[in-house]
């Protein structure tokens, strides 16, 4: 940032804008039947209640708009909030829904997946600071754990996490980087927890309750038989969770 654009009282800044990229679950609606939506939403939330509690969500209305299905938008947002979800915005809505969203204090996002348009526009307004290096300049050390991680324990690693023993059912391991479990993974593993899409999970024996990379997750029921009880690596490809044997 050049000197002439700096305000005079820069010496004691009260705030700062930073650009960041976050991963947020998108709730895509295929029906405008509020009762049906509510029932099915409850079922989905029950599968991983802690994950969804107070989770921000983006509501995708593309399908409904294309089929010209009218949704009681305000009632839907209220229902979502009642279920402890935090809708932060919508995309693909009709002009009326866009207006209602603004009234409810929700942002309206572009339907382009890369969202380069929106971020490009916003970039002009933010005081960009190219010389402010990413926080990941000092690469956080790998956390190494060599004892079994028991049910009920939670581990959080700022970098990579390596576990040299088993992870019991009911345990939760989280890392901002990669996760390696050189043992049986029976609990939950969440890698790339601050949004790193390139994080991977490696384990010697997959029996996990839930695996997640940068917020994209799969629960035990959805794991294919062909990858269970085997050494696997899990990574993201085009926002889809891929599980391959290694």
């Amino acid at each position: 940032m050049s000197a002439d654009t700096q305000p005079a009282n820069y010496h004691h800044p009260a705030l700062e804008f930073k650009s960041s990229s976050l991963t947020v679950p998108v709730l895509v609606l295929f029906s405008n039947d509020l009762t049906l939506i509510s029932t099915q939403l409850d079922e989905k939330l029950k599968q991983a209640p802690e994950f969804f509690k107070n989770s921000p969500i983006l509501v995708d209305l593309k399908f409904l708009t294309a089929k010209q299905l009218n949704l009681e938008f305000v009632a839907f947002i209220k229902a979502a909030r009642d279920k402890a979800l935090i809708p932060i915005g919508i995309r693909g809505g009709s002009p009326e829904q866009t207006r209602q969203a603004h009234e409810l204090g929700l942002a309206v996002f572009s339907t382009h997946n890369t969202e380069t348009n929106i971020s490009a526009v916003k970039q002009e307004k933010l005081p960009a600071k190219p010389d402010q290096a990413e926080d990941a300049d000092t690469f956080p050390a790998t956390q190494l754990i060599s004892h079994p991680i028991r049910s009920g324990q939670r581990i959080y690693a700022k970098g990579d996490l390596i576990v040299l023993a088993q992870v019991s059912a009911g345990a939760e391991i989280m890392a901002e980087g990669n996760i390696h479990v050189y043992g049986t993974l029976r609990g939950r593993a969440l890698a790339g927890i601050q949004g790193n899409n390139d994080s991977r999970i490696f384990c010697k024996n997959l029996q996990a309750e839930l695996v997640s990379i940068a917020g994209i997750y799969k629960i035990s029921e959805d794991l294919d038989e062909s990858v269970r009880n085997k050494p696997v690596q899990i990574f993201l490809e085009d926002q889809a969770l891929i599980i391959n044997g290694i």
């Binding site: 004892h147 079994p148 028991r150 049910s151 009920g152 324990q153 019991s168 059912a169 009911g170 345990a171």
Partner: peptide, 13 residues
């Protein structure tokens, strides 16, 4: 077995 596992975690911490 699950409850014992939980207890082991508590013993360790």
């Amino acid at each position: 077995v699950r409850d014992s596992d939980r207890m082991l975690g508590i013993l360790a911490s």
